[in-house]
């Protein structure tokens, strides 16, 4: 697979990635494992864990890992930039356009509409994740809700962000106490 092909593949995935990192991971699996057979299933599944654990968008991390696997460091860079480029080329002009348009008095309703979209979609994302948490066994479910509300409380109290992340990460593996292995 040439660097150009990696770039085009990532661009295509970038354009189709609606719905967060999980969609991006599925699309990379389809391209590299199912269609092109360049990466085997086991190697790909080893990439998913670190992609989720490493901070930042998990879609970008999987782009890095697949690019690195098929074409070294250059492949990783090209794969990441391919994934980011189409969304950036859409979101920046769109933002400039919407900001300008919302200043036209007749179209001022756009301002409120965008805010309603932002708030509702963030809450919808929380509902979707909550559904997965509630599907866990009782012990994990209760521990997750306490852990989650603890993070929300710290944020509401405006505790230093670095401290919140560090505390969350220290507590994170302790969830294993409630897991049946």
């Amino acid at each position: 697979m040439t660097l150009w092909e990696i770039f085009i593949t990532s661009m295509k995935i970038g354009l189709l990635s609606y719905g967060g990192g999980n969609t991006t991971i599925v699309l990379f699996h389809r391209e590299y494992v199912e269609k092109r057979k360049l990466i085997d299933d086991e190697t790909f599944s080893h990439m998913i864990g670190p992609s989720i654990f490493v901070p930042g968008p998990s879609g970008l991390n999987i782009a890095y890992a697949t690019g690195l696997e098929v074409h070294g460091v250059a492949g990783a860079i090209v794969s990441m930039f391919g994934l980011m480029l189409p969304p950036l080329l859409i979101v920046i002009p769109l933002w400039i356009l919407l900001k300008k348009t919302a200043e036209i008095p007749a179209l001022s309703g756009l301002k409120l509409a965008l805010k309603v979209v932002g708030g509702t979609m963030a809450l919808y994302a929380a509902v979707v994740i909550l559904e997965r948490i509630l599907a866990e066994k009782t012990k994990v479910k209760i521990a997750s809700i306490i852990y989650g509300l603890g993070i929300v409380t710290l944020l509401a109290l405006k505790v230093n962000l670095i401290l919140v992340v560090i505390l969350s990460l220290i507590v994170a593996p302790l969830m294993g106490i409630f897991v049946d292995t």
Binding site: I52, F53, S144, G148, S168, V171, A172, M175, G176
Partner: peptide, 9 residues
């Protein structure tokens, strides 16, 4: 446990 916690975060 860590994986499940990422979901909670």
């Amino acid at each position: 446990g860590f994986k499940k916690s990422t979901k909670v975060i």
